[in-house]
């Protein structure tokens, strides 16, 4: 069971309180009705699925209820950072230099 730092509760909580919510930073087009089939496919179906650092969404569904973002290494499953929804992607280089993400 992972231990996940909730940026709203400001502490690590057990995975059982969280729901994974897919890839992060896929903004819903503001002109939704007008996008092309390809753009819709990219928005709704295509995923980065990286082996390595992934930006992803979680919801502290059985905690504070908030959605937030995380950077996690999908090989080690270690979290490098979690941050609030709406905040920009953290700088990967500075995160990886910090080492074990603890």
């Amino acid at each position: 069971m992972l231990l996940i730092y909730c940026p709203y509760c400001q502490e690590e909580r057990p995975e059982l309180e969280f729901a994974h919510a897919g890839e992060a930073h896929i903004a819903r087009p503001t002109n939704m009705a007008d996008i092309s089939d390809e753009e819709f496919e990219t928005f709704f179906f295509i995923r980065s699925n990286p082996k390595g650092l992934a930006y992803e969404r979680w919801r502290h569904v059985h905690g504070c209820g908030c959605f937030f973002n995380a950077v996690r290494d999908t090989v080690s499953d270690k979290f490098l950072a979690t941050y609030k929804t709406g905040e920009p992607k953290p700088d990967i280089d500075s995160l990886t230099k910090k080492g074990d993400g603890k």
């Binding site: 509760c9 909580r13 057990p14 059982l16 309180e17 059985h62 905690g63 209820g65």
Partner: peptide
């Protein structure tokens, strides 16, 4: 805190 107990919130 909201949390889990067994299988319920």
């Amino acid at each position: 805190s909201r949390t889990m107990l067994g299988k319920v919130e």
